[in-house]
Amino acid sequence: MTAAVKIDVARLDAWFGRVHAVKGVSIQVPERGVLAVIGPSGCGKSTFLRCLNRMHELVPGARAAGRVLLDGDDVYGGSVDPVLLRRRVGMVFQRPNPFPAMSIRDNVIAGLKLNGLPRDTDEVLERCLTQAALWDEVKDRLGGSPLALSGGQQQRLCIARALAVEPEVLLMDEPASALDPIATARIEELIHELKERYTIVLVTHNMQQAARTSDLTAFFYLGELVECGPTEQIFTNPKESRTEDYVTGKFG
């Protein structure tokens, strides 16, 4: 990789009370790279992801320690406002979570409106929905309820919503796990397009998905990073036997 390092995680630990969920993880993600995080359920993938935009600390009793650099700046530095950080590091959740009390249009521009950012909202609306490959499907019912959309459409709406605040990084926590195969395929296509502009960290327990979409793959097991490397290498020639067992389906 010759590109600049966008996210640089060094010896990151995270706890829920006594539970040590992420143990000394160090990973680097290049600018406009896609990192896939795989591993069996409960191995700390989501927790790791939520440490990157400081969502982890919102859980009562949760702590984190270590270093996370975004463009060289420590996101856990004393002067960093997590609110501003989260505008640079967007997130898409496992279950689509559009705001039910808002229209489709208001959902997309929610980040701008709530943050009081003056933008040409119509331009943002069309651009983000187009980027999220949803524009054609909803352009005639922008005032309607997001709850009338299918699960896959709702998830793309959430992606559009995240894009609207113009983040640099997109964190996606199993964005397709609640969706049917066709919707999943659309989300994967979308990731392909989005990586032209954004650095993406994608949590998935679907190994084909990781193989299809990512440049780098990190394998987590019991809170530890077992191995991280180019996706092709992880899937064809892993260094660690635990990785090999996992990607060949021997456990997990």
């Binding site: 640089d8 060094a10 706890w15 702590r63 984190a64 856990y76």
Partner: peptide, 21 residues
């Protein structure tokens, strides 16, 4: 980065900070 990380950890022997800003 690694170098600065080492310094940071030496300065703060208990790295577990409660994150509530």
């Amino acid at each position: 980065l690694d170098a600065s990380l080492g310094k940071e950890q030496a300065a703060a022997p208990s790295p577990a900070i409660r994150l509530r800003a």
